[in-house]
Design a protein around this nucleic acid. Structure first.
Ligand SMILES: [Mn+2]
Ligand SMILES: [Mn+2]
Ligand SMILES: [Zn+2]
Ligand SMILES: [Zn+2]
Lengths: 133, 133
DNA sequence: ACTTAAAGGATAATTATTATCTTTTAATAA
DNA sequence: TTATTAAAAGATAATAATTATCCTTTAAGT
């Protein structure tokens, strides 16, 4: 169990119980929509306001503690920022999985054209996951 | 100038002036947000309703005549469906460019793992375009 | 314990999108 | 052509998603 108290403080964020719960949920679940994050949080903090969820998600996004992942034909999910990686999105059950794909060759190709300086890449592969096949 | 009248009819959509204008704008502009599509349309049809924009965009999405492209940290853009391709998104001016990148190697790698059946891929490279460098 | 800025909760406001209803019109056939 | 009709447009209400505001509570530092 990671100590997110200090990590939050390093980002100049107070380590409130609500925030620790959000980070813990993100840590355990991996990828989650605003909607289901709220549902899970309500179980722990029956009177939590949806505004608190949004305010915290936005704060955490601002300092890159977390990231938004936009999924085709589905709602965005949020996750704790880690090494750059791609995603597999199951069109049937909606599950989002991480996958590490080496895009260096591709990025080098683009770099060669010298017409666009790439800073980051977002790749989502949509299809059917193991379970749903 | 492409004849979208018949193309629309092939999709079982009436070729209304509003729709022909939308398809023409999409054809000329390439990638456009709902917001700016509406702005452009208002110039041609001063009394057009925003609902008409949404209804048409949704209808055209349903039969895959057009596609949504989700862009990190920006609003979605829409474009006429064509061969599968990737996108370059300029973080400075917001311009979206098409780029054809061969992802076969990558998709084959994923296929090998036999744990996920890929149906489609969405790749967006964010960075700085030629003009903005 | 005391102080204080930050954060939470309640809720209003705003923005984005969809639904509903009436009027208009594109497509088709007499 | 004109008549018919289902589809589409336009106006606007309703809903959903997100943000702003305001007051209360609390984490963090002294
Ligand atoms: Mn991930
Ligand atoms: Mn494109
Ligand atoms: Zn699945
Ligand atoms: Zn640019």
């Amino acid at each position: 169990m990671i100590n997110y108290t200090n990590i939050l403080r390093q980002h100049n964020l107070k380590a409130t119980p609500q925030r620790l719960a959000i980070t813990d949920i993100l840590h355990v679940q991996g990828h989650i929509t605003i909607e289901s994050l709220y549902e899970v949080m309500v179980k722990k903090f029956s009177s939590i306001s949806l505004a608190t969820i949004y305010k915290n998600i936005n704060l955490m996004l601002e300092n890159s503690f977390i990231q938004e992942v936009k999924i085709p034909h589905a709602k965005s999910v949020y996750e704790i920022t880690k090494e750059s990686h791609s995603h597999l999105a199951c069109e049937k059950c909606g599950e989002i999985q991480d996958i590490i794909i080496d895009l260096d060759n591709i990025l080098n190709e683009v770099a060669k054209t010298n017409t666009f300086k790439v800073n980051s890449s977002d790749l989502v592969l949509s299809g059917i996951c193991k379970n749903c096949q």
